[in-house]
């Protein structure tokens, strides 16, 4: 209790003073913006890589070719079953650090690869979830109309499966924005790390991290709103 009261007492110095020190002085707000740029770069890079990988892995897992589905299963198990931060450290210090050709690749790329490889596993599963939840009768109907199994997949199952998977997919995007906050472990300066650096200079326990939290919240809320609209538009066809 005493500790909590002491935390609050940091605000004994007026809020305005703390604001000046943590955000205005030395253009610290600008440094946060640059960090936000890095967060966006990492998230967008990772979602692109993750989507490509996710589609491939999903098709592999659904495939009837045993080695392919076994590989996809193993991949998904490994990447979903271990902490992302451990994966990031292994990929940066281990994989990229010990292979001569990869050593001088910018660390943003190493981070995008780490986040993308991880995201691929989750996206594969959410896509698969969408596809398998399309009623088997749809496949039978397609096949009996004379479509090949690929045509059935392409024109009947996939459009419906993707629509079912869409809300989870957008959620994965939002999760990724927050997960890139561990990029600071490899000395990458994303939004969280920038806030942390300000904290290491001003020693303020509240303002730098609260500002960072509010920025994340504004972005994720804005995205939820946008994705919500798209989702509603996708649903319009259901009510005919």
């Amino acid at each position: 209790m005493n500790g909590i009261l002491l935390w609050f007492s940091e605000f004994g110095a007026s809020f305005a003073e703390s604001f000046e020190k943590n955000l205005i002085r030395q253009d610290r707000w600008l440094s946060l913006l640059r960090g936000l740029g890095m967060t966006v770069e990492l998230t967008v890079g990772a979602i692109l890589l993750g989507t490509v990988l996710g589609i491939l892995l999903c098709l592999m897992k659904l495939s009837s070719v045993k080695p392919l589905s076994a590989f996809a299963k193993g991949y998904i198990r490994v990447f979903r079953g271990t902490p992302l931060v451990v994966q990031l450290l292994i990929i940066y210090f281990g994989v990229f650090g010990s292979i001569q050709a990869l050593r001088f690749v910018p660390k943003e790329v190493a981070a995008i690869v780490a986040f993308g490889l991880n995201s691929g596993a989750y996206i594969a599963e959410l896509l698969r979830g969408g596809i398998v939840s399309v009623d088997q009768g749809q496949v039978e109907a397609g096949r009996s109309l004379g479509l090949s199994s690929w045509q059935t997949m392409r024109y009947i199952v996939l459009p419906q499966g993707i629509k079912i998977a869409f809300p989870t997919y957008t959620q994965e995007f939002i999760v990724l924005i927050k997960e890139t906050a561990i990029a600071g472990y490899i000395a990458l300066e994303d939004l969280t790390k920038k806030g942390d650096i300000i904290r290491s200079r001003t020693f303020s326990p509240w303002l730098p991290l609260l500002t960072v939290a509010v920025i994340y919240l504004v972005i994720t809320t804005a995205l939820e709103i946008i994705f919500g609209r798209v989702e509603r538009r996708l649903r319009e066809s259901d009510n005919r």
């Binding site: 007492s9 605000f11 504004v218």
Partner: peptide, 20 residues
Amino acid sequence: LVLVIALAVCAFAACGGNDT
């Protein structure tokens, strides 16, 4: 929402002031 958060922060600030 943003305003509510700002208010909460100010409330903390006021609380801290009293505490000391």
